[in-house]
Design a protein around this nucleic acid. Sequence first.
RNA 1: GCCCCCAUCGUCUAGUGGCCUAGGACAGCGGCCUUUCAAGCCGUCAACAGGGAUUCGAAUUCCCUUGGGGGCACCA
Length: 506
Amino acid sequence: MPWLRRMPVSENQNFQGETNMTEPVRVRYAPSPTGLPHVGNIRTAFFNWLFARHNNGTFIVRIEDTDVARTVPGALEGILEGLEWLGIDWDEGPRAGGDFGPYFQSQRLDIYNKMAKELVERGFAYYCHCSSERLEKMRAEQTANKKPPGYDRCCRDLGLGGAPGAVIRYKTPLEAKTTFHDLIRGDVTFENATLDDFVLMKSDGYPTYHLANVIDDHLMKISHVLRAEEWLSSTPRHLMLYNAFGFKPPIFAHLPIILGSDRSKLSKRHGAVSILEYKEQGYLPEAMMNFLALLGWSFDDKTETFSKEELIKHFSIERISQTSAIFNKEKLDWMDGTYIRKLSPHEFAERAMPFLEKGLPPEVKRPLDISYVKKVLPLVHERAKTLGELASKELTWFFFIDKLDYPAELLIDKKLDRKATAAMLDVALVRLDELSAFDADTLESVLRPLSDEIGVKAGQLFGTVRTAITGLTATPPLFQTMEVLGQNTCMKRIKEAITKLKENAG
RNA sequence: GCCCCCAUCGUCUAGUGGCCUAGGACAGCGGCCUUUCAAGCCGUCAACAGGGAUUCGAAUUCCCUUGGGGGCACCA
């Protein structure tokens, strides 16, 4: 009975990940509320969720709030908001409850305390009275002498008792190896001698991640631990703890890390790293989900588009890549564009509205005129990569603002001069004034022949009118744009353009 | 410095000894369409890090080198 073992093990430990499918799949996402929900973290949560859903298992959110100093107010809410935005729901955890709670580690302190003490009593751990100053100095010397930094085991055999300021350390076996089977990386072996006596309980009475995560994963009956690769090197420590406690370890799978464009771990300087930033920028959650799924996982040699249901259906750990992946924002943009284009006009309007309300200049009257917006939106639907950029100068401002701001030169075609341009607009103005209908077809039937009449190419005339009407050279189709803008606005803007040309003529 | 992981187009990847003169996608480039911009369609550029070994045969197996990443806290 391993539970009764009194001395640290010294024989080689082998932990083969038995895929015992008779046990229910229970996986967890265990964020620490120390900052915004990083896309890398969320991707880990997402893969856990996919694995749970694929196997009809349970997805648990557990909050690892054991670092009092680093806890950030609002971080927890942000993390949950990020999950909810993507449509990742959890069966147990904050707000959801469950039979294995509490799901906040800060509320489980007595458990960790009791179990850590038990480890001390049974000879697997010991109290350490070393001050942080001493440890810092020790580390500095080790680094200076190019030695691997690590606790020098000063208190290991002193048989010290608990005291204020003391910590509990694990008595790492000095010999032998720890081997385990990782579902993504195969067998991984560490020499125990390369591991130091790590801290289990901090002096403030909180457990370290190593202790708390092992105890909770066991108590919460976690079957598989899918976590980022940065945890790979602390897995042997966890295994030693499972062994010391006599717990059966879960099956491990260490996910590839997401990198920034310079191949280092994705961080702030690479741009947006919080999933909520993407929400605010108007990316579609379903596109984000699809994109994230393909960062480190693939289905076959050609499928790029997956609905949530398809992802759940096809997801498997075997198809997770072993290689870290660079976050390719260009591809995200493309994918988001494809999802936007698939939206029905109604749904597009529905989802775009909040972004227009937020992003259009303040002088535009709120609330926006919905029926007008619904006329504008189809013209920009296939041009937007995100909902957020819908409310940009380039895409929609000119539909809503009163006064256009652009240089007169923009009106003038390369092969024409200022005078000819003004003359062209003069004629156009007259023709448009005569119109009783102002729809795209009518407009084309009037303006297209006009170019012949004036002796310019259609594109030259249209280009100048386009700029006069929108202040831009790249816009949705001219006649449809004019139809939406209406006769009055178009006439007014052409007049303003003519004035602009004549004013600066000298 | 020590430990661990990884290595196919610029990027995400397919590829589990012969189907590979290496496939797809994004980006790039060229073209078509066209009133501009998009979208769409067609085409094109572009990779098995290097060296050994195993084998009739290696992107696929093994070893070494190199390169990249991660870890080495009273942080998670």
